[in-house]
Amino acid sequence: MTRLEIVNPVARTLEFSVKPAPRLADWRGVTVGLYWNMKAGGDAALDRVEALLAARVPGLRFRRYTGSVGWLMRHCTPEDADRIAAEVQAVVGTTND
């Protein structure tokens, strides 16, 4: 048998850990943020989310957001995230494909 020893080319990575937020225990007094990164169709999806949530939980409030920077996709800056976190208790996003 022939033995071929090589240097592993794959880099180690920096590791991060974020604790998930506590989930909603009830919907009373909740304002839901609807975040759209402006990729086509995401706004229509959030329109439907708003309608479905409003029908299910009367009195629920909503706020619409997009990021303050970007182009095809508008991104949320740290300042945007601070503002959203101060204004709503949950967020539904269309930020992916």
């Binding site: 974020v18 949950a90 967020v91």
Partner: peptide
């Protein structure tokens, strides 16, 4: 947003 205590779903 999760880091800031806001539950999310995408």
């Amino acid at each position: 947003l999760e880091r800031r205590g806001v539950p999310t779903v995408i």
